[in-house]
Design a binder for these strands. Structure first.
Length: 462
RNA sequence: UCCUCAGUAGCUCAGUUGGUUAGAGCAACGGACUGUUAAUCCGUGGGUCGCCGGUUCGAGUCCAGCCUGGGGAGCCA
């Protein structure tokens, strides 16, 4: 008999048929006559109830059906006599693939703290919460590719190892094959990277943007979706040392087009989840965050507020409120300021644009006022900046001047500058932090719980 | 990295001004129960009190250092 997924049985229950399911025991209840086994195979958050008449099975086999054990069960799918489910399987045979010693298995029938489960990341997939989170994570990854593919964007693979040290997005992880105990040295006593694997200093990428621009300036619209690495000593519920980022980059888009895309994109993803992950979202809404569904629907239904940095500073200055950090034109906005705008003043997602050039990256398009750049940050309730992007500076000389002002070594960026020399074009793009999106989508509160194996300072277990 | 809180049974926690043998609920295990839904009821076992020093007649409790984790901040996505 061919195995059926539990999702399939529950979605289209063909009662009366013999079925075969395989999965892991969530709980087993019963008395000396009958056993009820809740079985889950990961296809859905819902379990199927297996009913076994104890007299039909060896006592030793029944004893081994404990929480966590892996079973193959065949039997007839019937309407349930009990209240909690529509259908159940009357087991005719049970095979135990993997026993699970109840005395040493870390997961219990009852709830565990997120911290405890994080330390058991190899097993936490077996919980309802993490099953839901990682099914949603998958659905979002798929929806991202679908969104862009349907709109003529090309998926571009930008390098993970980079020789460019000029992206300026944070501390980088060094990549080397040199013997750290005994590295080759130059005459002046420095490490001689010309004898390293790539013949130069290399790092793990902090962004695929610069390479993404190269693709956009010929392919038109591209996006990247890959791992990103930051060696910052950040210890917060919103930061990872290894995370996934989506970076679309579009020729002929100005900042307005860029904002329109970002807003449409995020709303599409939320809508996709609402339509395709309702069981998992419903569970998370009940167990993790009672306001989750309401918030997701609200974001889809309402326009994002769009204001300039300068307008935001005015609002913050006028707010009758004490700031821990001062507000003033030219200062970067702090978390408390962003939170006020999103969660109190506007009570909806906010896109801030046209920041002072001093607090933004070198590649952003300079406005005519000489003071601001065509930047945009999309701020979300609860998680802060979910998207950061800009129109890019396409003017070769303006870009070169800015690079020189910031003392960025041109030898690392000659190829980037050449795109402005040969057939330059107005273009824009942004970066969306995938895990921050998943935080918002699931109502989870710590970013370490929305990536299967989090990498953070002092933690690379599993 | 800074601020702050915490670390006691498998899990979640209590533990009095420092004082004899460190407790509870849940889980596990044994038993009862004719269909259970985080089943229920009765019973049993289970401890390097994060680590290392110090103070003291005596430290889970007080002090110093370190480690780990949570929350907040910075950096950012």
């Amino acid at each position: 008999m061919k195995r059926k997924r539990i999702k399939q049985l529950l979605d289209n229950p063909a009662t009366g048929e013999d079925v075969l399911v395989k999965g892991w025991v969530r709980t087993r209840r019963g008395n000396k006559n009958i056993s009820f086994i809740a079985l889950n195979d990961g296809s859905t958050i819902n379990n199927i109830q297996v009913v076994a008449e104890n007299s039909a099975f060896d006592e030793s086999l029944l004893r081994e059906i404990t929480t966590g054990a892996c079973l193959a069960v065949s039997g007839k799918l019937v309407e349930s006599q009990g209240q909690g489910q529509n259908v159940e399987i009357n087991a005719s045979s049970i095979e135990i693939y993997g026993k699970c010693d109840a005395e040493t298995y870390p997961l219990q029938k009852k709830g565990h703290s997120m911290e405890f489960l994080r330390e058991h990341a190899h097993l936490r997939f077996r919980t309802n919460t993490f099953g839901a989170v990682f099914r949603i994570r998958h659905a979002m990854a798929y929806a991202i590719h679908k969104y862009f593919n349907d709109r003529g964007f090309y998926y571009l693979h930008t390098p993970i190892i980079t020789g460019s040290d000029a992206e300026g997005a944070g501390e980088m992880f060094h990549v080397t094959t040199l013997d750290l105990k005994n590295p080759p040295l130059t005459e002046t006593g420095e490490v001689d990277y010309s004898r390293d694997f790539f013949g130069k200093v290399t790092n793990l990428t902090v962004s695929g943007q610069l390479e993404g621009e190269l693709g956009a300036l010929s392919l038109g619209e591209i996006y990247t979706f890959g791992p990103t690495f930051r060696a910052e000593n950040s210890n917060t519920p919103r930061h990872l040392a290894e995370f996934w980022m989506i970076e679309p980059e579009m020729a002929f888009y100005d900042l307005e087009d860029n904002m329109n895309l970002a807003e449409d994109f995020v709303k599409y993803l939320i809508t996709y989840a609402l339509e395709n992950c309702s069981d998992d979202l419903g569970f998370l809404n009940n167990m993790i965050d009672k306001g989750l569904l309401e918030r997701l629907k609200f974001v889809v239904a309402n326009d994002f507020v769009r204001i300039t940095y300068t307008e935001a500073v005015s609002i913050l200055t006028a707010a009758s409120r004490k700031w821990e950090y001062p507000v003033g034109w030219g200062r970067d906005l702090q978390a408390e300021h962003e939170r006020y705008l999103v969660e109190e003043h506007f009570k909806r997602p906010v896109i801030l644009t046209d920041y002072p050039k001093e607090i933004k990256a070198f590649y952003m398009k300079q406005n005519d006022d000489g003071k601001t750049v065509r930047a945009m940050d999309v701020l979300f309730p609860g998680i802060g900046e979910i998207i950061g992007g800009s129109q890019r500076e396409e003017d070769h000389d303006k870009l070169l001047n800015r690079i020189n002002e910031l003392n960025i070594p041109i030898k690392d960026l000659w190829w980037y500058l050449e795109t402005r020399k040969f057939g330059t074009a107005p273009h824009s793009g942004f970066g969306l932090g995938f895990e921050r999106l998943i935080l918002f989508m699931t109502g989870m509160s710590n970013i370490r719980d929305v990536i299967p194996f989090p990498r953070t300072p002092k933690n690379a277990e599993f």
